[in-house]
Amino acid sequence: MTSVILATATRYLMPMLLLFSAFLLFRGHNLPGGGFIGGLVAAATFILHSLVFGVGETRKILRVRPVKLMGLGLLIAMASGLVGVFTRAPFLTGKWYELVLGQGDKWHVGTPVFFDVGVYLVVIGATLIIILSLAEED
């Protein structure tokens, strides 16, 4: 059922889609976007891959089990909440720090970004678990 066009297109699309999902993830800090839809786009990328090359192949290129992505994401999200606790504020309080890179460039980092990264990983993991196991059934 694999068509050459789809297979070739997928090869070129996948990096771009993954890049786009990362773009959505980081843009979500101040603008529409965020971990949830970023994660969905990333998961959709892998699902597209599984449609073309089969689920087994997708699991191979994923390298980690989707379950572990979920575990990691939950831990990252929770750790981002704990930053607030360690600075004597309630759990999940947003904290921003400025990292000074060389030549006066400043990088504005906040805990919500890490929370979003956690969400991103959880969404990828959960979506892939559900859809890959459905796809494997038949």
Partner: peptide, 24 residues
């Protein structure tokens, strides 16, 4: 002190997440 309120939620969460990392 107020940490006590959040602990009953984040302790099981941590446990479950670490468990997911030790899958199998």
């Amino acid at each position: 002190m107020k940490l006590l309120l959040i602990l009953p939620i984040i302790l099981p969460l941590t446990t479950a997440a670490v468990g997911l990392l030790c899958w199998r």
